[in-house]
Design a protein around this nucleic acid. Structure first.
Lengths: 116, 116
DNA sequence: CTGAATCCAGCTGGATACTG
DNA sequence: CAGTATCCAGCTGGATTCAG
């Protein structure tokens, strides 16, 4: 597979390109939280333990820019903003699930409890 | 899913645990190169464009430590060292393939040429 | 409630030089 | 040929503060 440039960044493989969309510590947890429907910022924040305000905002902006989530604002008081998965992101869900399955099998092998 | 500690690092999900094994820029290219059989350091280096010496060594050490590759040395002159996938790593290959597929579909959508 | 901006510590990875 | 060590620039992400 040949290298290619996209948005001034070099990619060495399709896998890297995929990881630019769902990689990092927080993108997958965010996508997982949104898989059952739109959520507003505050609920998303509550649903994802340990994530900092800055990281949640940053990651949401990146996902928005990559067309993985849409952002809808409601002119209310107090303001309301809802985030929702796009079709592009929904295509990633099976991949994420398979990654989770592999992770669980690795955890079993390592003797880590993997029950909910 | 509950958080857990492993090797003094905190993980928030099985996906993160999986990514600790195959994540980063270089682990997947390395695993892909080894999927057809053992390779020695020099050949691996030649097979992976752009990777620096330091990164290849570092990543190989990490993969070895995680039991994803084995390292076999031959007492010859000049010295020979061969790396090979373990069963644990072979379990990751289907996951990697699915990631690549998703990456390719994203590339199509972005209008990037994805032919070999 | 949602979001932008700033400061700053820590990690990542490149370049380079040296060893058996 | 394979591997180690050091230096250092750049990015990442946390804490904090300010704003609509």
């Amino acid at each position: 597979m040949n290298d290619f440039l996209y948005n001034k960044r070099i990619f060495y493989s399709p896998v890297e390109f995929a990881m630019a969309h769902i990689g990092g510590t927080w993108k997958i947890p965010i996508l997982n939280c949104l898989r059952t429907g739109a959520l507003r910022y505050g609920d998303l924040k509550k649903s994802i333990p340990h994530i900092s305000h800055k990281m949640l905002i940053t990651q949401l902006r990146e996902l928005e820019e990559k067309n993985m989530v849409t952002r809808q604002t409601f002119q209310e008081k107090p303001p309301r903003v809802e985030y929702q998965l796009t079709a592009k992101a929904e295509m990633a869900l099976p991949v994420i699930d398979q990654l989770a399955e592999y992770g669980i099998s690795l955890m079993k092998e390592a003797g880590i409890d993997h029950t909910p």
